[in-house]
Amino acid sequence: MEEYRHRLMDYVREEIMPHRFCTGCGCGTVLNAFVNAVEGVGLSPAKMVCVSGIGCSSWIPSPYFRSDTLHTTHGRPIAFATGVKIMRPDLTVIVIAGDGDVAGIGGNHLIHAARRNIDLSVFMVNNMIYGMTGGQVAPTTPYGVKTSTTPHNNVEPAFKVAELVMTAGASYVARWTTYHVFPLMESMQNAIRKRGFSFIEIVSQCPDNYGRRIGLRTAVEFLHQFKEKAVRIDKTAGMSEAELADRIIIGKLCDRERPEFTAELHALTRRIVAALKQEQPA
């Protein structure tokens, strides 16, 4: 009898499975959606470089996805990815990392990459907590939540990361949750195809280190909540700020054509080299 082999097994590093994600973690869902999206766009992992930082979701591509992968220092994957993309613009460069990595310690790189509109796809898994270190407050933790470092209450508002990236100049920005897997897969395909900086905020669950602090013990409870709280962006017109305060706005925030950084940079280089050749024929 032929051994069953999943059709997407060639996209992952089977030799280090099973993965290390906790029971109920959203990272497995994101890995699943990502691998399906890559297959959907017909991209060979050999033509991809995945870059990630430090945190649970950084393990989604590194080491589990079978492309060239660069598992960098905390907060810096977008900076490393910038160097990769400039030197190898023919490769598809993807960053998958968490909210602490991308929007906390690495927030500066995020907004500047969006401003440059460099052709990277950044998939930020937002579990609203520092999960790997055991549940400390993140820049994305909602106001009023008790965490291990806000034992009395979080008095800071949460970052609206997708809106921030859109304002900074990205070509494509969307937000989905781990409940909305199929729209997420489609959105990932669009982001990968987009010429320019594309960003998807993926609201995800961390039952072990966030859920237990807010009374959501299981992934199922989280997914129910994501379903209930989600409001499609085209339904938000006419809703007040107060009405939206506790909701998760999902959908495509922007999809627009803007000059892409590496194309601009290399076009400039080609013009300069061509002008020099005219001056000094070899």
Binding site: V49, A79, F80, T82, G83
Partner: peptide
């Protein structure tokens, strides 16, 4: 490329080297 800070600069250099 002029990066946003020195941390990003050495990061981009390492990325370019691997490329």
């Amino acid at each position: 490329i002029q990066m946003e800070d020195e941390i990003a600069s050495i990061g981009a250099v390492i990325g370019a080297s691997w490329s």
